[in-house]
Design a binder for these strands. Structure first.
Lengths: 210, 210
DNA sequence: GTCTATAAGTTGATAGAC
DNA sequence: GTCTATCAACTTATAGAC
């Protein structure tokens, strides 16, 4: 199946995006050349410009697609605003961890390469990021108003929880000490307590995940 | 005081490091050229090599100094292992937030540019990062053994707390809604609950920071 | 759709003048 | 200590052949 030239009529576009995502995540956008991406795909550098107008668009499209996928995947996974906020929060924690760990490269890109976006592109990605954060913040506010959660500041709790959960992607290894499910259990336990009232657990059963 | 040439006998070295730190934090190591650093300092590119053997050493030295300063500053701020773990944890949370917010560029560098270090340099920085994490982990283990803390996994709680606290540097603005002290109060409130027993607050007074 | 060739500019780093 | 000049290699992106 090795051929030096000729049409594929196939999936060179997606393969370029996949190679770019992997290389950008590993070495950083600025450190990766179009020639390196081309070599990873098995084409010459000039061929890339049949699929992308420039390097910046390649980065933006990867980040934009990731954010759009993230938001619509959560909207599909959200058990719904009629359920108790703690139930929705548990769903959010598990969703965010699983979704992120299955897309470690895209997650990495989306918060490491913001500074390599042009101002216009940056603004568009930021808006999507805020949209996603607002989904969590509205759950926390509902819990606050209903009295099932006690948090000093809904906005800061949102940022704290997302930082805590996303941080998992920097150390998690599939062949490590803990499985993805087990990590999700442990983080849900901690997240639950973070938003709990001063009298502690009022949802989710046992205090231990063991 | 404008001069085009001649000796300073002064602090060009530190100024190069300061300019590099600021530029690396803003645009990323790979995206910043030696000529840009030189221009920020007000010298020609060749002059930089009187102070640093190469660009990589400039990055490594900045990260190394930051990690060394962080660890020795905490060792000086630690109230000591004879105090209750919750007291030490409160000190750690406040220390980490204040120290990080006063050095936003260095913090940014130290976790965004790890992938631009050579393997040897990476290993040295990683060892320092682990040393710092171990300081927190030992506090959590002491709380666990003494029964004043309830956490599902000491290692994961360490990583979760550090991610949560360090995340502040990505959004905090000195002229924003909340002061550094107020942010530290709110995060301590959340951190305290994260490690609390199932019956909630057993230290630190009121459940509210208001 | 992919190649080759190339334009036009930047890069990290060095040598030697002063 | 700093400058100027320079090197070889590399960069993004385009043009035109096939």
């Amino acid at each position: 199946m090795v051929r030096k030239t000729g049409s594929h009529a196939d999936i060179t576009g997606p393969r370029i995006r996949a190679a770019a995502q992997s290389l950008f995540a590993r070495h950083g956008f600025a450190a990766v050349s179009m020639r390196q991406i081309a070599a990873a795909v098995g084409v010459q550098a000039g061929a890339l410009y049949f699929y992308t107008p420039d390097k910046q668009s390649l980065l933006f499209d990867l980040m934009h697609d990731h954010m759009q996928t993230l938001i619509s995947a959560w909207d599909a996974a959200d058990p719904g605003p009629e359920l108790p906020p703690l139930v929705r929060l548990q769903a959010f924690v598990r969703f965010h961890i699983h979704h992120s760990l299955e897309r470690a490269d895209a997650v990495f890109l989306s918060y490491m390469e913001l500074r390599n976006l042009t101002p216009d592109n940056f603004a568009r990605i930021e808006a999507l990021r805020r949209t996603y954060e607002d989904r969590l913040e509205s759950i926390l506010r509902a819990g606050l108003e209903g009295g099932t959660m006690h948090i000093p500041d809904a906005k800061l709790a949102t940022l704290a929880l997302i930082a805590m959960l996303t941080g998992i992607t920097t150390w998690f290894r599939p062949d490590g000490r803990l499985s993805c499910d087990r990590v999700a259990d442990i983080y849900w336990e901690m997240a639950r307590k973070t938003v709990a009232g001063s009298l502690g657990a009022d949802f989710g059963g046992s205090d231990s995940v063991a």
